[in-house]
Design a protein around this nucleic acid. Structure first.
Lengths: 162, 162
DNA sequence: TATTGTTATACTCTATAACTATA
DNA sequence: TATAGTTATAGAGTATAACAATA
């Protein structure tokens, strides 16, 4: 059908109210997997991020890149890839997009003509400043589903896993 | 991730050993965000999953679909999309891939000629049986980074967030 | 030789809009 | 009208392999 809009706009949670043959999907072994719950939580946070920051057309990963570049001005693409855990070729695509949106720029590196030093553009700095406020609100909204104590434990556990 | 084989195979953690201008990227505000740590942990688990199950060319999401179909034989694409939280058009693509790999199949539904009932093929059942063993091992490997008590708390917290 | 960045190519995941067939 | 599935289209994210320029 048409775009899901209908379906989703109508009632995301309620499916065919009291229809006789309503099938409630069971998760099978998935509910026993830590990875499954982790993935679902991740998706949920992603959705909230998009809803809150979406207007800027920035994804969580891109936001991370902007913050990384701001905190480490001048780092090159290989270093960025290392910090993010992605391939050099992937970095090219990521940088291309952000540069295309006028948020970051590539500069020649004195002493190494192979590399590019990455930096935020004036617009990038301006946008990032605003994004940071929004992202902090978004993250607080997510974190508040846990008590202060749980929040600390949660991050500790996430780091034990990562 | 990645292959990045060259870079990573060499020494994932060591970058330019004692180079004078070695820049150690700082994470900036990222380390304060729950969402950031959640995303990193997710990526880490994804990598381990790929390394462990990769040979089958199955992603965590596809594995989830197979389990869901096995546990709810006959559910249709819209129901699958609802259970997964994705759009109908996305389901088409997902089902196409799995069907293309001969793991699942679409069957006519008696009483509703618009819908398709999804089911595992013989090969799908066979492959899933093997995958489940591997995935369980993989998930145990991940979970064991936490104590038994932490594991339970962790899942609880993930569900509070999702 | 090793490293930096690039390009070509190829998937997966995901969404929106418009359309067909059926309910 | 509403729902099931499809198609066309688009974009993010990611990887491998091969290559050029430079170190």
């Amino acid at each position: 059908m048409p775009k899901t809009s209908n379906v989703k706009n109508t009632k995301p949670t309620a499916r065919r109210r009291q229809q006789p043959g309503l099938k409630i999907p069971t998760q099978g072994m998935l509910s026993e997997l830590v990875g499954y719950h982790l993935r679902r939580a991740q998706q949920r946070v992603f959705e909230d991020f998009t809803a809150a920051i979406g207007g800027y057309g920035i994804t969580p990963g891109q936001f991370g890149v902007l913050v990384l570049i701001e905190a480490n001005t001048g780092l090159n693409q290989s270093e960025l890839g290392l910090a993010m855990g992605v391939d050099r070729s992937t970095v090219v695509a990521i940088v291309d997009r952000l540069e295309g949106n006028n948020l970051i720029s590539r500069h020649p590196v004195l002493g190494d003509r192979r590399a590019y030093a990455l930096g935020l553009t004036a617009q990038g700095k301006s946008v990032l400043a605003k994004l940071k406020v929004r992202v902090r609100q978004h993250d607080r909204r997510i974190a508040q589903k846990l008590s202060a104590r749980q929040q600390a434990q949660f991050i500790t556990m996430l780091n034990q896993i990562a």
